[in-house]
Design a binder for these strands. Sequence first.
DNA 1: CGGCAAATTGAAGTATTTCAACGTCGGTGG
DNA 2: CCACCGACGTTGAAATACTTCAATTTGCCG
Lengths: 259, 259
Amino acid sequence: MVSTHIAGRDNADRLVGLHQFAALSREALTELNALCRIHRYEPGQTVAVDGEHNDYIGFVKSGFLRMQKTLSDGRQHIVGLLVDGDMFGQVFSGPLHFDIESATEAHICAFKRVPFEALLERTPELERLVMLNLLNELDRARDWMLILSGQKVSCRLAGFLLVMCSRFADIDHVLTKGRDGLDVKIPINRTDLAHLLGTRTESISRAFHALQEAGDLRILKPNLVRILDLEALASHAGEEELLASPNLRDLVRVIKRRA
Amino acid sequence: MVSTHIAGRDNADRLVGLHQFAALSREALTELNALCRIHRYEPGQTVAVDGEHNDYIGFVKSGFLRMQKTLSDGRQHIVGLLVDGDMFGQVFSGPLHFDIESATEAHICAFKRVPFEALLERTPELERLVMLNLLNELDRARDWMLILSGQKVSCRLAGFLLVMCSRFADIDHVLTKGRDGLDVKIPINRTDLAHLLGTRTESISRAFHALQEAGDLRILKPNLVRILDLEALASHAGEEELLASPNLRDLVRVIKRRA
DNA sequence: CGGCAAATTGAAGTATTTCAACGTCGGTGG
DNA sequence: CCACCGACGTTGAAATACTTCAATTTGCCG
């Protein structure tokens, strides 16, 4: 791995920030901690490549990673973002069919595959945890599908922003609450956002400005927007549709309570 | 469960057709077989409901199930299909955030959650299998995302048809090879297909007819098409994009070899 | 054969893509 | 310090695609 390796001082502090491990027993934690290495990546570094032999399982400690497919002509097509707590890699030789690249500065907790799997097999609590992790990712992938099936670009963009507010909240300075709104940092550029939402940069730009006209948000900088009216944003995203997703339903409920 | 329960004759035949279990040891198979019950569903029956207490884990033995979100106004929004070998339910109390309904006649292999999880915990080979199953589903969910991010309806429809040909091939009479093409049965109606692909029925209809005009396929019946030129279909789907997905890449390779 | 649901078609209005031009920001080198 | 460059974002205008609504056709079932 081409990255900065950070020597963990010692025992129990390499897993800090991986809240999903919090419930594990002291023994499991000690073993996990012994196995893992922390790596730091600068924005734009390659973390893992599709097809190459990847003998590492990674957990994101902080930052954003891009999951992307590299097309045969060299263009890259982003298919998702990994954040705090997300797992990636070929657990049990499962598939890893895309490249992973850091979008922001990122810290990764990396395990060698073989010893990690061995630990997994003799630690049911850990295995259950990994399984739950996968189930959650699957769930979120389906949320994305709901968002992507909005017919208008502004629906999909609004949906994306809501996901940023819910799933990605409290992560890595993405979101700061102000008195008159939420400031959301967007970790990818318009080209990638366009790919992610199945459209082009020009349409993304126009959709942002349309939402601004509607009073839902203000564009502070191209990749920093202040959400002024979360509720209006939710109805632009097609509230009906989003209410079908529990993750987003929770968010909408929070919004309503505040309003 | 409201369904026809089929009394398994005895030991080892209830798991027939679930090829993913083939590699398990005789002991594991016997235990699994003892735990499971086969249910048969007619098209349109409800298999599981979001939010209700679902103490069953299911594996699809045959047929198509629809995963769908039910909106607050009663409309249903399909988000995916389950086929042969797919698992559903709240393993380890994980999420099940949509309803499941049979789209065709379907056979389900059902396990009570608690004993199934117990078996899972003392049978590492089974646990690994379930984990691989999840990883695969995740992978396919991401393939869907790639398909859904096509900008034109005909791209997405072509992508859908390719998935039908690859993932769903050799399942339940979906696909029959003729001399002049592949006959593909489409297990859902235009309204659901429209939802799945993020558009409306009229556009689906026009896209089908556009692909027919282009010579890629012939519409035999509304829900039965004959693929005449798989390669052309792949290029309509945006070959570049699809080549990024290994599942679809395999399919394209097969097509090319045949051509 | 009638009746119903699903699919198709047409036509008008809207949204998006495309292509081209212009701005803006940050860095580099004179 | 400022001019210039390049990458990225924004804007405009014409072509294209999609949605919407209404009307019609098709296929199926009683």
